[in-house]
Design a protein around this nucleic acid. Sequence first.
RNA 1: GGUCGGAUGGCCGAGAGGCGAGGCAAGGGACUGCAAAUCCCUCUACACGGGUUCAAAUCCCGUUCCGACCUCCA
Length: 467
Amino acid sequence: MSSLSLYDTLTRTTSAFVPLKAGEVGIYLCGATVQAPPHIGHVRSGVNFDILRRWLTKSGYNVTFIRNVTDIDDKILHKAVHEKAPWWAVAMKYERAFSDAYAALNVQPPTYEPRATGHITQMIELMALLIERGAAYAPGNGDVYLDVRKLSSYLTLSRQKLDDLQPAADADETNKKDPRDFALWKAAKPGDPSWPTPWGPGRPGWHLECSAMAKAYLGEAFDIHGGGLDLIFPHHENEIAQSESAGYAFAKRWMHNAWVTASGEKMSKSLGNSLQVAELLKTVRGIELRWYLGSAHYRSMLEFSHDALSESATAFRRIESFLTRATEILGSAPTPVISQGFSDAMNDDLAVPTALAGISEALRLGNSAITSGDKAVISSSANEIRGALEVLGCDPFDSAFATSGGADLTGALDGVIQLALAQRAAARDRKDFAASDQIRDGLAALGIVIEDTAQGPRWSISQISEK
RNA sequence: GGUCGGAUGGCCGAGAGGCGAGGCAAGGGACUGCAAAUCCCUCUACACGGGUUCAAAUCCCGUUCCGACCUCCA
C-alpha cells in the first residue's frame, strides 16, 4: 500500500505524512463561532476534515480529533443584543444548530469538542507563561497583548511581512508597544461577560482559546492543524505566535480547505449569498449534500449551484441504487473493501475526485454483472464501492442515514405492493397492458416506482425533491 | 500597495512534460409490450501571446480576466 502524502500550507508542498508518535494522530480543527446558523461553507470544512479523519482511521491510526466551539466573542455579544437574549443562550442555540447540521451530514463527533468558555483557566495559565517569558505584556488597562516583534517566525504561514500589515484597530493604540500587537485578553466592558484574571476582569481575545485548548488536549506538539483558508491570517498566525512564544512546537502540519463560492465569490453572511444547511436539507438528503460537498478536492473552490447539487444527488442515487439491488441479489449487505485504486487516490493528498472515477468504473462493472447475473462481480464491485463510500462518510447502510419507518412498516408495505405487482403480472401475461399500466401509474401516483428488471419487477420509494 | 490562488469541453470537475480521469447533459444503439433502470457507442477542452523541449493543458517569461487574505470569517 502506498503511503499517505498531504499538503502543508506552511511549506506549500505535498509531503509524506509521518506522525509524531507511531500509530497516533492528533488533529486540531478550528470549529465554528456559534453566532449564526451554519451555511454550507461551514460544513464543507467539517466534511473535508471528517474524510481526512476517516481515512487516517481506516489507515490504522488512532486519531484524536479536536474541534472547538467558540462560544464567546464580539459577534455573539452583538447577536445577543439583537435577539434580546443572554449571550450564552445565543451561543447554545447556534451550537445546537451546528451539531444538527454535522449530524445530518454524518460528520463524526470530534473526540473532544471543547468550548472556549470552559478553558479560561488554561488561557490564564498560557498568558502568565507568555508574560513570564517576556513574549506578552499587560499594560495595566486590563488588556493583555502579544509582542509580535519578539517572534521571528511570525507571519511565516501566510508569508507576509510585518511592515506590510495595517495596524489593528481593535484596541486602544496607546497601550500597545507596537500597533501590530494583538490582544490575548480584552478588559471587561460594562454589561459584557467577564472572568477574573491577575490583570483584571475581561474576556478572551480571538485567538487565545485555540492555543490553550490544543495544548490541553493534544499537548505541546501535534500532527495536523486544520481550518478554512481564511483562517491562515490572522487566526492561525496568531495561534502560532502564542504557542511558539510559549515554547511549544505546536502544529507540525497545516491544512486548509477552500471555499464554497456562489457566483464566483466566497460564501458569506455579509454578502448575503450564504446558503443555510437547514434550507438545503429540504431539497436533498443529508447523505446527498455530503456527497456533493465531499466530491470536490478539499483545496479546490466549490462553486455552488442548485443544478450542480441536484445532478450530484442524482449521481449518488445511481450508486445507492446499485448497492440496494446488489444487496437484494446477494441476500446480504456488501462488505466494505478498500481497493488499491481508492487507496492510492486517497493517499495522494485525499484525491477524492480521482477516487470517484474508480467508483464509477466499479459501478459500471457491477451494473453489467447484475444484467449478466455474475454474482462474484456484483459482490466485488459492491464491496469496493461500499468501502469507498464508508471512508467518504456516504455509506447508505450507515445507521446515521437510516430512514425512519422501520423494518416492520417496510415489510408490510412490501406485502401490499407485492399483491399489486401480482395483479400487474397477471395483466401482462394476458397482454392487458392498459390494466398493467394502470397499476404502475397508480403506484407511481403514491410515490412508488416500479421497474422491470431481469430478476423481475422491483419497487422503491421515489425521492422527489421539493423545490 | 503586500501576500496567495484560479481560468480545462454545453455544464460540473480531475490531471501537472508523452497514453484525451470521471460524472452530468446531448445524439445514436441494445434490452423492453411500453416505461424505468442498465449496458454499448459518439461528441467536445486546456484564457491569450511568446519561449524551452524530440514532445507543453502541464515548465519559463509576459498579458488579460476572476477571486481570496491584509485583525469578523469554514
